[in-house]
Amino acid sequence: MGPMPHPAAPPLTPPGTRPCALPSAVLFDMDGTLVDTEPSWFAAEAQLVADHGGSWTETDSLRLVGWGLEDAAAELRRAGVRLGVRAIVDELLTRVVAATRARTVHRAGARELVEALRARGVPLALVTSSEAPLAEVVIASLGGPGVFDVVVTGDLGHPAKPAPDPYLRAAAALSRHPAGPPDPARMLAVEDSRTGIRSATAAGLCTLAVPHLVPVDDAGAHHVLPTLAGVGPEDLGRLVARARP
């Protein structure tokens, strides 16, 4: 018997409800939100620490979910990895990029939602703490260059999440969209980690949490859904409307 299908999220729009305005833009986190790369990060971290004679557990990896890569690398140094921070980042990226290129696992409903938003003309941004080489692999799996109007990666020199800078940078870039600047009050960020949620909310964005490996109930998201399966553009518009009366 094959794997059981992921249950769809409960309907957000009751039958017969009048259509709701779509979000003016949607800003997606990547790792754990659009793609399930976390097992690859966990394996790369554990193997790198083991290569240097240290000890690393899944609990250690879970603690780093959503962190910037340089911050995570500093933790691996404290666990015994005898490399500089940049060398650790490069080693982790090399391993995770290879694993993701070999097999990209999308989170339930994520690819379908991105496609539906593009079809409706909603501007999209990718806002990730990962660096460009991994983002390029994921973007290719979702339709290739151009599927996101704005791409903000962790190697652009800004402070990492939970600082608001990644989302502020993406919002500023979206304001130059050819169709006109999206209404900031109707932008929506989609995240899976406490770190990412705090970054998006600190940037003033309505934020939807879709938890994956870590609980996020205390992180301050405006909405929490168990999955993106069955979620469409109108559903996201309704969530923004609820948070921004």
Rank of each mutant, 00 (worst) to 15 (best):
E45W: 13
E45I: 01
E45K: 05
A46L: 13
Q47V: 11
L48Q: 01
L48A: 03
V49N: 00
D51S: 13
G53I: 12
G53A: 08
G54C: 05
S55V: 11
W56Q: 00
T57L: 04
T59E: 15
T59R: 15
T59A: 15
S61E: 07
S61G: 15
S61R: 09
L62D: 13
L62E: 15
R63M: 10
L64K: 04
V65L: 15
G66W: 01
G66Q: 03
L69H: 02
E70H: 10
D71G: 06
D71N: 09
D71I: 02
D71V: 09
A72I: 02
A73F: 07
A73P: 02
A73E: 04
A74R: 12
A74P: 00
E75T: 02
E75V: 06
R77H: 05
R77N: 03
R77T: 12
R77P: 02
R78T: 02
A79E: 03
A79D: 07
V81N: 01
V81R: 01
R82G: 12
L83R: 08
L83K: 07
R86A: 14
A87F: 02
I88T: 00
I88A: 00
D90T: 12
L92M: 05
T94P: 00
V97I: 11
A98K: 07
A98S: 09
A99K: 00
T100W: 14
T100P: 09
A102F: 12
R103V: 14
T104H: 15
T104M: 08
T104Q: 14
H106K: 06
H106Y: 05
A108H: 08
A108W: 06
G109K: 03
G109C: 06
G109Y: 08
A110Q: 10
R111E: 09
R111A: 07
E112I: 04
E112W: 11
L113E: 12
L113S: 14
V114F: 02
E115R: 13
E115I: 01
A116Q: 15
L117E: 00
L117T: 02
R118Y: 11
R118D: 13
R118G: 06
R118M: 09
R118A: 14
A119S: 07
R120Q: 15
R120M: 06
V122A: 15
P123L: 12
L124F: 11
L124T: 03
A125Q: 10
L126H: 11
V127D: 10
T128M: 11
T128E: 06
S129Q: 05
S130N: 13
S130D: 06
A132D: 15
P133R: 04
A135V: 14
A135N: 04
